[in-house]
Simulated scan of single mutants.
Amino acid sequence: MALEFPNLSRSFDEARNAIRFSGYDGMTQVPFLIEAGALPRSGKTALSEEECLTAFDAARGSIHNVARKTYSCGRRPFYTLTVADF
């Protein structure tokens, strides 16, 4: 089965300065984390929690595409997306 993202929920992880979200491969949940540094910044050097969530929502399609590509490279229990992935 292909990796899908039917659940639009996401949350900010303050300790890691990142956004958590999940995909699903059939019935299997696949957890992801995208570092704040990989989100579009609009010229800012740092983003608040609200700005990170807004940036994630605005770039959701491309983030999901990168997540699918990363997932297809090998199964792991958890995936972290960084600026290098984009």
Rank of each mutant, 00 (worst) to 15 (best):
S9E: 12
M1Q: 00
D85M: 07
L53P: 03
A67K: 09
E35R: 13
A55P: 05
E51F: 01
Y24R: 12
N7I: 14
S62C: 12
G43W: 06
C73N: 15
N17Y: 14
R10V: 09
I63M: 10
K69W: 12
E14C: 03
F86W: 15
G61N: 12
A18T: 07
L53D: 05
S22C: 12
A15F: 01
V83Y: 14
S9Y: 08
A84P: 02
M27I: 11
F21T: 03
E49Q: 15
A36V: 06
V66M: 10
R20K: 11
S48W: 05
D25P: 00
I34D: 04
I63G: 10
R20T: 05
G37M: 06
R10G: 00
R41Q: 13
Y71V: 03
N65W: 09
F86K: 12
T82W: 09
A2M: 01
I63V: 15
F21G: 04
C52V: 05
G26V: 04
P31V: 07
G74F: 04
L8R: 13
G26L: 01
R10P: 00
Y71A: 04
A55G: 06
F56L: 04
E4Y: 02
V66G: 03
V30T: 02
H64C: 13
T54L: 12
H64F: 14
Y79P: 04
P6R: 09
L47I: 07
F56N: 05
C73L: 15
S62H: 15
R75W: 10
L39V: 07
T70P: 00
E50R: 09
N7H: 12
F21E: 06
F86V: 11
T70Q: 14
A84I: 08
D57F: 05
D25V: 00
P31A: 04
A18P: 05
V83R: 15
D57V: 01
A18N: 02
C52I: 01
A2I: 00
T82M: 08
A15H: 08
V30G: 03
Q29T: 14
D85E: 09
R20S: 06
N17R: 14
G61F: 14
H64W: 11
C73F: 15
G74Y: 08
A46Y: 11
